[in-house]
Simulated assay, not measured.
Amino acid sequence: MASWLPETLFETVGQGPPPSKDYYQLLVTRTQVIFRWWKISLRSEYRSTKPGEAKEIHEDFLENLHLQGQTALIFGTRILNYVINLCEGKFDFLERLSDNLLLNIISYLDLEDIARLSQTSHRFAKLCMSDKLWEQIVQSTCHTITPDVRALAEDTGWRQLFFTNKLQLQRQLRKRKQKYGNLRGKQP
């Protein structure tokens, strides 16, 4: 499966912690970890400093505690742990899927599983609450969606529509028709 991976597995940029103004780039390829830096300083002794770069193959990065420390300092321990996992060959293929593909997959889950999945990460929480997902779920569970129901869903949200019981739904549709019927009647 690793052959399905792109050449660049991960890339991020960041600025050093204050008072530093230095910029950093961390790039993880299939075989290397590349750590680059650019000194930004008004001091004359640093003006001619050239950008720097440290390249390590994955196995060497796992043993280089200094470079790991620099990575954690600049990008945080979460990024460091992710890079270590990549270097150890632990790839998160699910994280690489597009939102549209994930939404399609999630739409087949049971409601309890969607609720659990939403608690696993910020990305999945956002996807599990998205109107796009709930529109797919409503369309798969309802035989027909009338234009009035679609308009109500656009107003209130597809998730809200899904969890509304039939009696409440009929009441909301009646109110919506009255509201927009009254507005049309008042226009010249």
Rank of each mutant, 00 (worst) to 15 (best):
M1S: 15
S3G: 04
E7A: 12
L9M: 11
T12K: 15
G14T: 02
G16I: 01
P17T: 08
P17M: 09
P19L: 02
K21Q: 11
K21V: 00
Y23T: 01
Y23I: 01
V28M: 04
T31E: 15
Q32F: 05
F35M: 09
R36I: 00
W38N: 03
L42F: 00
L42K: 01
E45Q: 02
Y46A: 06
K50V: 00
P51C: 03
E53K: 11
I57F: 13
Q68A: 08
L73C: 02
T77F: 02
T77G: 06
T77S: 13
N81W: 05
I84S: 03
D92L: 08
F93Y: 14
E95A: 15
L101Q: 07
L102V: 06
I106K: 07
L109R: 10
D110E: 13
E112F: 12
E112G: 15
I114Y: 11
L117E: 01
T120F: 10
S121E: 09
R123E: 00
R123M: 03
L127T: 09
M129T: 11
S130C: 15
K132M: 08
L133M: 13
E135G: 06
I137H: 12
V138Y: 08
Q139K: 15
Q139R: 15
S140L: 06
T141L: 13
C142S: 12
T146Y: 07
V149C: 06
A151K: 06
A151S: 15
A153T: 03
R159P: 08
T164A: 14
Q168I: 00
Q168N: 13
Q170N: 14
Q170S: 13
Q170C: 11
Q170I: 03
R171F: 05
Q172N: 12
R174F: 07
R174N: 10
Y180R: 14
N182M: 13
L183Q: 15
L183N: 12
K186C: 09
K186W: 06
